[in-house]
């Protein structure tokens, strides 16, 4: 059942993004930034948590879930270490994904060459 919920929640989040893409002049980069920021805001005011409990990876894998994790981290950091924790918490909670993207990006650029589209 949790796979079905993940599929549906994740799929629907992407459909919202697709509707915005197709009906406006916004680019995927705009969508990424606005979804992420939306995730931070929703996470900050506690509205995203129920979706995470319901949808599991369907709510955490989309970039909006990345925003949620940033907000959660910042709040936890603030609870534990005050202002310093508010600064450090967001990146701490998402450090794995960010570091992975950087190191794998570097490695891939050494191993592979971009291919022309056809």
């Amino acid at each position: 059942m949790e796979f079905v919920r993940a599929f549906i929640v994740g799929g629907l989040i992407c459909v919202v993004g697709q509707i915005i893409l197709d009906h406006t002049k916004l680019t995927p980069a705009h969508i990424l930034v606005s979804f992420l920021t939306a995730g931070v805001v929703l996470g900050g005011i506690g509205l995203y948590e129920p979706l995470v409990r319901f949808g599991g990876a369907g709510a955490t894998v989309p970039i909006i879930g990345f925003g949620y994790a940033l907000a959660q981290g910042a709040i936890e950091g603030a609870k534990a270490n005050g202002v310093i924790g508010a600064f450090a918490g967001g990146i701490t909670s998402t450090a794995g994904g960010i570091a992975a993207a950087i190191i794998f990006g570097y490695i891939m650029s050494l191993v592979f060459k971009p291919k022309t589209k056809n």
Binding site: C14, V15, Q18, F35, P62, I63, I64, A100
Partner: peptide, 11 residues
Amino acid sequence: AGAAIPITGFS
């Protein structure tokens, strides 16, 4: 958007 929004798209 189905490929762009998941964290794989960020990657």
